[in-house]
Amino acid sequence: MATPTLEKTGSAAQASPYITVTFRVRRFNPEVSAEATWQDFQVEIDPKERVLDGLHKIKWDLDGSLTFRRSCAHGICGSDAMRINGKNRLACKTLIKDINPEKPITVEPIKGLTVLKDLVVDMEPFFQAYRDVMPFLITKGNEPTRERLQSAEDRERFDDTTKCILCAACTSSCPVFWNDGQYFGPAAIVNAHRFIFDSRDEAGEQRLEILNDKDGVWRCRTTFNCTDACPRGIEVTKAIQEVKRALITRRF
């Protein structure tokens, strides 16, 4: 939020950075109606601010019933993934000026998950898929007395997929996931990739076996929606193809 500066009203007023932006928000409240509807809000906002700031202004000043998730508000917690102008993004990393404030900015919940209220969806199926790939270090034998050492190259191998913040932007942009929630989805595969290619981990075989299933990596249609959606810039589709390659080279 921009803090208003004191005693500069005279000259600063004519060069005010504020513009009026229309936010078109997808509203759904099961306690009022079974239908989801679009609602427009006019907000005075600095175009250098983010969509999340706009949502805050709506919630704090215009309509307190607007419901959305956000925690850190700085692109790390992954709570505020939403569909902004038809594209999955983090509201806290999307600047107003980057998404054409001349036209109404549409804000919808992410697709493929059950909408509970306004922009809040039920993330449970998403996290169930995450849990199913066992996203934790598994080793055999005695625990070493020192750290588990790893060379820089070995660390580099899975560096890209460690960046995931579990915001569900990728999974909820996947057309296969929209139609069949049984599919693990890009995020779960990315997090499996992070351990499959970790030289310290010893359960890669087990994870590959899980992803070899009919709802695993073979359902990926390589549409690259996930790579486009990822707010962390992870090459998600590439990671999925690397798991496919590992599955094939393991057999032949």
């Binding site: 069949d180 929630g181 009919k214």
Partner: peptide, 24 residues
Amino acid sequence: APVIEAPRKRTKKTPKATRTNFEM
């Protein structure tokens, strides 16, 4: 109001890997 469930939702009861290579 009833919420609109996503198609074929993943739950805890979703069957685990079938251990065949058919899809591959």
